[in-house]
Design a protein around this nucleic acid. Structure first.
Lengths: 331, 331
DNA sequence: TTGTATGCGTTATCAT
DNA sequence: ATGATAACGCATACAA
C-alpha cells in the first residue's frame, strides 16, 4: 500500500482503472480514447477524487499558467481596482495571479523580478519605479503607466488627452483663470503628460492658467500654501483648478473649503483618475476617468501573447469625463 | 550543444564547474561543501547567471511556498488593505501569494479552492460566503471573519467588544437616545456580534437604543427612509448613531446632512472598520478600528504552522476607537 | 488505439 | 566530502 494520507496521483488512477499511465493522461487532457477505457478511467478518477497536479504539469510544459502582478501600493484605490480587474481577466483565461507589492522600492522590484523568474511565471504585469529594471530576455513584461523602452510594451490611459479634456471642460463651465496642481514624480511615468495636455488645452481655449508643481516627496501642504497665497480679500484668484490626481483634488477641495472658498460655486475642481470610494458610481470629485477594466484587459492580452511579432511600444486608452460634485455641471 | 536560448539548469552548472549534480545542489542549499569546489560552483553559477527553479523545487519537496488569498472583493478598502498586509507578511517569510477574488459567489469559491489544490498551494487564507465550503483535509485553511467549524481557525477583530466600545463612547459623549444601523448578511459572519455588543453596551450604560436592520440585498435607501421617518419638526429622534460598517456610516452621514441634520452637532455617528481613504491617518468617520496588520500577521502564522497540535477555533483581536470628524471629541 | 519509456529540474539516498 | 542514481507527477515520442 502506498502512503495513505497522500493525494492520489495519475499512477494511482491508472492502477485503479487497470490501464496505463499514458491513457489516463489522454483522458484527462481530452485526447481521443476508446469509450470503454474512458469510462473506466473516469470512474477511477471520481472514486479516488483525483485532481491533476498543475504544478507538475507546468514543470513538464515549461509554462505555469501563472502571471505576476507587481504594483507599488495595494492601498491606493487605483492599484487596488486595477489588481481586481487584472485578476478577473487572468482567471477568465485560467491563469493564476501572483501579487507583489513594492512600496515604491526599487530594491524590492529587483527582488520580486528574481522571485518571478525563479517561480517560472509566464510573464509579469506591473509598474516599476526603476525604469532600468533588468528583466529577463525571454520573460514577457508589460509596464503600466511607464515607458521602459526596449521591447517592453507600456499600457496607459490617454494622459495628454485627459489633460486637454479637463481644460476644455473647465472652459465650457465658464472658467477663465485656472490653476494646475501637479505632484511631480521622478519615475518616467506617463502621468507628466496630463500637465502638458492641460496646458495645451488652455492655450487652444485661450484661458489663462498657472502651474504649481510639488517637488517629489514634498507634502501636499505646499498646495495649501499656494492656494492661500492666491487669496486676497477673501477672493481666490482662480475660478477653476485641475489636479493631476484625484487624491490631490480631494485634498485641494478640503483645503479650499477650510479657506472659506465654496466648491464648486466659487471655484470648480477637476481631478484625474476616476476614483470611487465604494465603487457605487459616485466619484470622489469631478474627474477624468481612466478605463481601468480596459487597461487590465489589454495588459493581460499583451503579456499572454506568445508570438509577439509586432508588440506595440505604447498602448494609449481613451479617457472620459465624470461629474463628481466639484463642478457646476449637475448631471 | 544544448538549447541555446533556454535558461541554465543545475546540470549546466555542474558541467561548467566540472562537478556532480548533487554538489551544485549542496552549494545552492548551503550544505557543507569543500572550499575549493564551492568556489568553482559559485563561479559557474555567476558565469551562467544560474538561478534555482523554485518550481521544480516545489515538485520535489511537496511544498510550494505559495499561499492562496481568497476574498470577495478587492475594491472594498478593507479587503484591499488586508490583502496588502497579508502579502507583506507572506513575502517576509519568502512565500508567494496567489490572489483570488470571488465576488461573493459560492460557485467561484468552490472553483478556486479546486484551483488552489491543483496548484499545490501550502494553504489558503480567505473569506468564504459558503460556510459549508469543502476544503481538503490536509489543506490548511484560515478563515477570516467567519467561523466554519471543523478544525478551521477563524481570525476576526473583537466585534462584540467593538460594539460595546461604540456604545460606551456615544454615552461618554453625551448621547441618550441612539440608533444602531445594521446591514444583515446571511453568511455566518462574525459581524453580527457588533450589533449584540452594541446592545449590551447600551444596556450597561442605561441608554435607550433602537435597531434598524437592512435585509440582505436591501439597498442603503432603507436607511434613508428610517432616518427621515424619525424626524419630526426638523428634529431627529436620535442624538447618536452606530453603524455596523464604515461604508454604512458614510452613507448615513451623507443622508443626515441632506435631511438638514448637522453632524456631529445634532447627531454623532460612529462606524466600524477603521477605513481611511488615502491611508494618511484620516478616518472616513469616527470609527472602531480593526487591527488589520495584526489580523494579517495572525492569518499567515496560522496557515503556515505545520505542526498544528493545538489550533484555535477563533482568534479575536482587540479593536480601538478612532476619531474621524463625526463625533464631538475633537482630538 | 493503447502501453512503455524517457525527461522536465530538483533533492535525497546511497555508495564511494 | 563527493558523485552517481532514483524519484517527485506529468506529458510525449515512440513502440506495439
Amino acid at each position: 500500500m502506498k502512503k495513505e494520507g497522500s493525494v492520489p496521483t495519475m499512477r494511482d488512477v491508472a492502477r485503479e482503472a487497470g490501464v496505463a499511465l499514458g491513457t489516463v493522461s489522454n483522458v484527462v487532457n481530452g485526447k481521443p480514447v476508446s469509450g470503454s477505457l474512458k469510462i473506466r478511467v473516469e470512474d477511477a478518477i471520481k472514486k479516488l477524487n483525483y485532481q491533476i497536479d498543475s504544478y507538475a504539469q507546468g514543470l513538464k510544459a515549461g509554462r505555469t499558467h501563472t502571471v505576476a502582478f507587481m504594483i507599488p501600493d495595494m492601498q491606493d484605490p487605483f492599484w487596488a481596482s486595477l489588481a481586481s480587474h487584472v485578476n478577473r481577466s487572468l482567471l477568465k483565461r485560467k491563469h493564476r495571479m501572483l501579487l507583489y507589492t513594492t512600496d515604491y522600492d526599487s530594491e524590492k522590484e529587483r527582488e520580486y523580478v528574481v522571485m518571478a523568474r525563479q517561480g517560472k511565471v509566464d510573464g509579469i504585469i506591473g509598474f516599476a519605479c526603476n525604469p532600468g529594471l533588468a528583466v529577463e530576455e525571454g520573460m514577457p513584461f508589460v509596464s503600466i503607466d511607464c515607458c521602459m523602452g526596449a521591447g517592453i510594451p507600456c499600457v496607459s490611459s490617454d494622459n495628454f488627452g485627459g489633460g486637454r479634456l479637463a481644460a476644455g471642460k473647465l472652459a465650457d463651465l465658464g472658467c477663465r483663470n485656472v490653476a494646475c496642481l501637479c505632484a511631480e514624480s521622478s519615475f518616467g511615468s506617463e502621468m507628466g503628460k496630463r500637465k502638458a495636455g492641460f496646458a495645451d488645452g488652455c492655450l487652444s481655449r485661450r484661458i489663462a492658467y498657472e502651474m504649481k508643481s510639488l517637488g517629489e516627496g514634498e507634502s501636499y501642504e505646499g498646495v495649501g500654501d499656494f492656494l492661500s497665497a492666491h487669496i486676497s480679500e477673501g477672493k481666490l484668484a482662480f475660478d477653476g483648478i485641475f489636479c493631476m490626481t484625484d487624491s490631490l483634488a480631494y485634498f485641494a477641495v478640503k483645503t479650499l473649503r477650510k479657506l472659506g472658498q465654496k466648491v464648486p460655486e466659487d471655484v470648480q475642481v477637476i481631478g484625474f483618475g476616476g476614483l470611487q470610494l465604494f465603487w457605487d458610481g459616485n466619484y470622489l470629485c469631478s474627474t477624468i476617468i481612466q478605463p481601468i477594466p480596459e487597461i487590465a484587459e489589454v495588459c493581460v492580452e499583451l503579456v499572454l501573447q506568445e508570438d509577439r511579432v509586432t508588440k506595440p511600444l505604447l498602448v494609449c486608452l481613451p479617457v472620459t469625463y465624470g461629474y463628481g460634485g466639484t463642478t457646476l455641471d449637475c448631471p
